[in-house]
Design a protein around this nucleic acid. Sequence first.
DNA 1: TCCACCATTCGACGTACGTCAAGTGATTCC
DNA 2: GGAATCACTTGACGTACGTCGAATGGTGGA
Lengths: 117, 117
Amino acid sequence: MPKPLPAMDTSAPVGCAPLASGVMAADDALAVALRLKALADPIRVQLMSMLLAEPEDGVCTCDLAPAVELSEATVSHHLKQLREAGLVEGTRKGTNVYYRPQAEALGALCRVIDPSC
Amino acid sequence: MPKPLPAMDTSAPVGCAPLASGVMAADDALAVALRLKALADPIRVQLMSMLLAEPEDGVCTCDLAPAVELSEATVSHHLKQLREAGLVEGTRKGTNVYYRPQAEALGALCRVIDPSC
DNA sequence: TCCACCATTCGACGTACGTCAAGTGATTCC
DNA sequence: GGAATCACTTGACGTACGTCGAATGGTGGA
């Protein structure tokens, strides 16, 4: 039977030992995999690159949606994935919500998977 | 309609500009996402850490399967994903196939997603 | 207050994914 | 050649995922 992936809080930057420092426990592997999964979609990679281009002000959903040629509902869904993984943060200003990248979370993820970093 | 992800060759290390260096084109985003997806599973993260613990000799399927408590068929499937993403390489020695991690591919992926590396 | 706009959630759809049992290859040893 | 062992492929199953239209929430301006 297919194993339903357990849920866990991924809002803080991942904090386990690097992949290369020994055999990883199942729950650490889950923590890493959930964050990778949040980024493992071409649209979300593109969204992330757009946010990284405006790290100060952020970008709102209504500007992101036409840029990736998807409905706002779909973009909102993708942003939710990234938000729950702690990779972006959204703050409301008036009617708009501006999303900014969380470089620390991205860096922490990277330090776990890179054998030489 | 759901977008069927286009296929592409991911056997070589990813070679595009970092995420943070500007808005990423759709095909570059796909190249990154496909490699991330290959690693975005707790079992595959665990397998990768086991391989990184034996980078010289490699580990064979029959040793990996009991370690993650899955059938050899399933482990073989996961290893195929990692192999097609260029993250591991398998070489046959007798009846066994020994898998070794491809640190360069892992490092290249990391350099693309890390804003500070 | 009411309307317009942006964002999110909900319901539904087709596809992709993880898993296993069973079958097929490949290699070694007798 | 035959048997044993390891690896991979195939077919099937349930679940999770990406997408959209429509409905719901918030916010600000007439």
